[in-house]
Amino acid sequence: MKIRLLVILCLSFFIRSCSDDSDIVIEPVAITLNFSHAWQDTEITSADFNDIKFPNANGEELSIERLRYLISEITLTHESGVVTTLDDYTLVDVTNSENLSLTTSATILPGNYTGISFRFGFSNDNNTDGVYQDLNTASFNVPGMLGGGYHYMQFDGKYLDTNSAEAPFNYHAIRAVDITDPNNLVFQDTSFQVSLGEIIVGNNTNVNIQMDIYEWFSTPNLWDLNVLNTVLMPNSDAQVLMSQNGTSVFSLVNIIQ
């Protein structure tokens, strides 16, 4: 009996040893996207909110009081050409310093990727009205009369108008919709992809990304808050301008393994 046990133990040991030597198991890994925020070259946090101290490109001084935005569709292109899109999304809430990092629940194989990108907002395919319970609970919805779905960004604050009086602005980005005929809404997908370039994915990859809030008001469309300040959700043209300005807002700070 004892001899038989000894044989079994030895066999088990050898089989395990063989297995370890011959198969290199590469486990899929998650990646983490970290979001920081700046006004031009100065990094800011919610501690900088509520003070009218940020001059935009058009010369208006403004404050930030609420800023939260939606990130989705993290896409990686492997050097082999295989494209992987991870279905994760997150509502980055700068006001409350919540969800400033997104660690993907889906995983990919480590290796060299020729590109990583994410989407600002939801693509039309994913912008389905009412289906995301966490975003409903966070009251991030877009009214049905504008086609439903979700905000891409809610950015509220105050600026000094031409009379130097404080006035509110609600820079709310959503899918552009022409509501000229309420029975025939015409949509334009104004979410956009942000490409961050090449990436080597290892076991603990952190992608550090910065949003330069100044850019929402500057490039390519100089934003005049005295003209475009509130009720921008039903303003299809304003939504297109926001989307165009958004493309220069995000940049890669670095990738840390």
Binding site: D129, G130, N136, T137, A138, S139, N141, P143, M145, V231
Partner: peptide
Amino acid sequence: MDEAKGDCFHCHGSDNNPLWTD
């Protein structure tokens, strides 16, 4: 729900947030 009228939904929920508060 109309941002150009009441604009109540930003703070008070909607047909998708039956709490009717944020």
